[in-house]
Write a protein that binds this DNA or RNA. Structure first.
Lengths: 228, 228
DNA sequence: CTTTAATTCATACGTTCGTTTTAATCATAG
DNA sequence: CTATGATTAAAACGAACGTATGAATTAAAG
């Protein structure tokens, strides 16, 4: 009755879009599916957002704005407590990936649906999506990279960047791949090991990421001069 | 002249499909693009393969058949040499992921193009693709899983499966994400650290994977009873 | 109530999609 | 050369796509 409704339609479209883009990808989802599931008129998307591309961007912005702020906030907090001293790698990894993973338990912020969408979209071929995500991430990524450089001064920067990249991949798959996991295991994974038990996935993944991040530096066999 | 030509058209379509599916995804690639780039008639795809889906599957089968056999061959060889004793984790990881990564240098087997396609497709939303890949991988995956179980008897099986999954993710991203890497670094990565230097990526990734695989087991905070 | 702006609705537009059909062309065997 | 089967070519199919339009409906202001 006395609702403050900021256009209920907008939110319904965003929710439906989030779920369908996650399930079928950007190209694989039609406006008719979205408006159908949202229970609104076909023209509503173009009225409220302008285009399908703009809708996709808004689906992400709605969640990423918060995630970026939260990641910044956590990092600021930790660095303030450290009083100028470098952070521990485990703190940085938790600030970046832990913050992300904990979103999965927060239905108000999209929950697992958004996380799976995000994970899948990082490999999404569509040009405009990757460009948009890169822009959205840029500032936060830079801060965390710097923190890692300070935290691991003995490790070459290029190596850290690569390992950051590897960590991103492992994390995305861990979330996006409910189904990709079936590649590895037929026998349905047992109750307490299920993908839905986010509280168990987080420490599992964290331990893997840290192990990778801190593993011995690779030995490049042979000189590099005798190759192209 | 005296060519044994097994229909040149077929191969041209497969090559064009491989490249375009890699660049724009399955849904994002049209048959007109494929036949256009291949320089063949539009109807040729349906004539030679039956449908777009069937073409996609053939694109993968052409490469995966060899990859699966090679992975099996390498594992058989190592296990024969071990004479019943468990393999080292590094051997198994290299047999599975190293064999894959070395395909990138083999243009005759699709090179980086196919590897990027494969990496992206693991998160591809299209149902039939994931089902197809799961089926193709099943047998080989089972063998490597068993080898890992034997190699790390003190680690719970569920934990190994998860870490296998994480390794898959890190590897896929490492290959597929030339562009996703731009998320992490603006400044174009230097010559010898470029993504194209496969000979440097392999030891880098291998060291990361092994570090993650052998990292300390996670401590699950609190009991599991007080949660849903 | 009347007016005005915001939103929703049904409908249609012009393209592009994957696939099919029918005819033309090619290679090869008798 | 002729006959036959395999391949290529040109054209069209209906369906689905994202988007735009103008009328109907709703909500808020005067």
């Amino acid at each position: 009755m006395a609702e403050v409704r900021t256009s209920d339609t907008r939110e319904r479209i965003l929710d439906a879009g989030e779920r369908l883009f996650m399930a079928h990808g950007y190209e694989g989802t039609s406006m008719r599916q979205i408006t159908g599931e949202a229970g609104v008129n076909l023209a509503a998307v173009n009225y409220h957002f302008g285009s399908k591309e703009a809708l996709m961007q808004e689906v992400f912005r709605r969640r990423l704005d918060w995630l970026n702020e939260e990641r910044m906030r956590v990092l600021d907090l930790m660095e303030a407590e450290a009083e100028g001293k470098p952070l521990k790698p485990s703190q940085i990894v938790d600030g970046f990936f832990g913050t992300l993973l904990r979103m999965a338990g927060d239905e108000k912020r999209g929950g697992v649906t958004f996380l799976r969408l995000l994970g899948r979209t990082l490999t999404e071929p569509s040009e405009f999506i990757r460009a948009f995500l890169a822009h959205e991430y840029q500032v936060v990524m830079e801060r965390y990279k710097e923190a890692l450089f300070r935290s691991l001064p003995e490790v070459p920067k290029a190596e850290i960047i690569w390992r950051f990249h590897f960590m991103l991949g492992a994390t995305s798959y861990a979330i996006a791949g409910t189904d990709a996991l079936r590649l590895v295991t037929d026998w349905q994974i047992e109750d307490e090991d299920s993908i839905d038990r986010l509280d168990r996935l987080v420490p599992r993944l964290m331990s893997f990421l840290l192990g990778g991040l801190r593993s011995p530096l690779p030995q490049f066999s042979e000189t590099t001069a005798d190759r192209k």
